[in-house]
Nucleic acid binder design. Structure first.
Lengths: 225, 225
DNA sequence: AAAATAGTGTCTTTCAGACAATATTTA
DNA sequence: TAAATATTGTCTGAAAGACACTATTTT
């Protein structure tokens, strides 16, 4: 008898990140299908591409986020595609992985099916999700070091020191207030609201995000300026 | 009657680049299968993942390069995955795209089935290969501006001005000899052979590539140094 | 007034760009 | 010797880092 060659599996997984209680967390979904591997375990939210429902892989990512995390319209960017014969016991598989950032006030609460875990103390994850998370962290930290990416983790209005704290949480270190302010101004991503906001000392200027500038960045360095 | 839902197609395409006659070229393969779209047209070399033959997507990329371009062991890096319902007339498809760099002396000659085309004057390509090529160029130029990536386009031994010319060809512009030399030294990717090599004027120092350092890079700029 | 927090001034060092000057070949 | 090519010296301005100082609030 002749076994039919199985086609490779095609899925999308999403590394969803937000600042919860001020620290960077990743969103995990409980695997809910008894017929699939790791039933009941906490894993990155993911799902198979549905050619009928999804026009693109990004559509799949948005559907997964909506269904498994209850998140509506996050910042979404393709990270990498993890593929091979051994990463999923069901056979050859490819997972197109996206990462997503949402501001704290939009982060959904935990539930039976969804929870937030601090990125630095996540326990063992199923499949190759540990490696995927590490890759996502690397990317987010790298982009944070030369762009305005962390704005997607921030509310629409922030003070300089709030934003600096967000950068520090993502990077894991402290930043010079003076230099930080200079670079933010240089990237042209914030405009003053004119209002002030106090947090127990001198009130801070409140800035509004200039819309859609979260990926503004500083120029590279080898090219002549 | 009930149409069976077709699974999505999974393929790998490769943007192969080399310096031919000193200018950056991309390798194109003639589409050889009469049963497939764009039969006879010149396109990026690609092929379906073969779960039986390939352990990983990178394996598929290497197989494609070997079979369609006759290239053995190039620098290979995943670029992006292009996926969606409309990019291939046969149905929902995902192409995991890699880009590859080879030094000029390893670049295979043209044939009935393979040819080199200058990256800036490539005619219309089938599928979304035009967009894929543009994305690859963007990535290579971006990495070139802060890393030693172009070493993979160079022979094992080079002079400073040869290497500078390579960078200039990739970036499309001229670079200051002084600053260029400083940055190369800083990246610690070359060691002197002690030999000299003349090209009609003062002989240049010949350097040897420090193995496996083609992706050495300068640090980012937002982080404290 | 003291503590807390925010924001600014500015000195110093480092780095990038520019380009002149020097060096060593071939024609 | 002139032309070609390579390499180095160094001046200048801009940017980054460090940090002290000023400002404005709450307690």
């Amino acid at each position: 008898m002749n076994t039919l060659p199985k086609p490779p599996l095609l899925m999308v997984d999403v590394v969803l990140m937000a600042l919860v209680d001020g620290a960077l967390h990743v969103g995990l979904a409980r695997r809910a299908n008894p017929d699939e591997p790791f039933f009941g375990a906490w894993a990155l939210p993911g799902g198979f591409v549905r050619p009928q429902d999804d026009q693109s892989a990004e559509d799949t990512a948005r559907r997964v986020l909506r269904d498994k995390a209850g998140v509506a319209s996050p910042y979404l960017e393709q990270l990498y595609t993890f593929a091979g014969a051994t990463r999923d016991a069901r056979g050859w598989s490819a997972s197109i992985v996206y990462y997503a950032l949402v501001p704290a006030h939009v982060a959904p609460p935990g539930s039976e099916a969804f929870r937030w875990e601090p990125v630095d103390t996540v326990r063992e994850l199923p499949f190759d999700h540990g490696r995927i998370l590490a890759t996502a962290l690397e990317r987010v930290r790298s982009k944070t070091s030369y762009s305005a990416l962390p704005l997607y983790l921030a509310p629409a209005e922030v003070t300089m020191s709030q934003l600096r704290t967000i950068y520090e949480q993502v990077l894991g270190g402290t930043l010079e207030p003076r230099g930080f302010e200079r670079r933010m101004v240089e990237m042209d991503i914030l405009e003053p609201t004119g209002r002030l906001q106090s947090a127990g000392g001198k009130p801070a200027k409140v800035y509004r995000q200039v819309s859609g500038r979260g990926s503004a960045q500083l120029g590279p360095s080898l090219l002549p300026r």
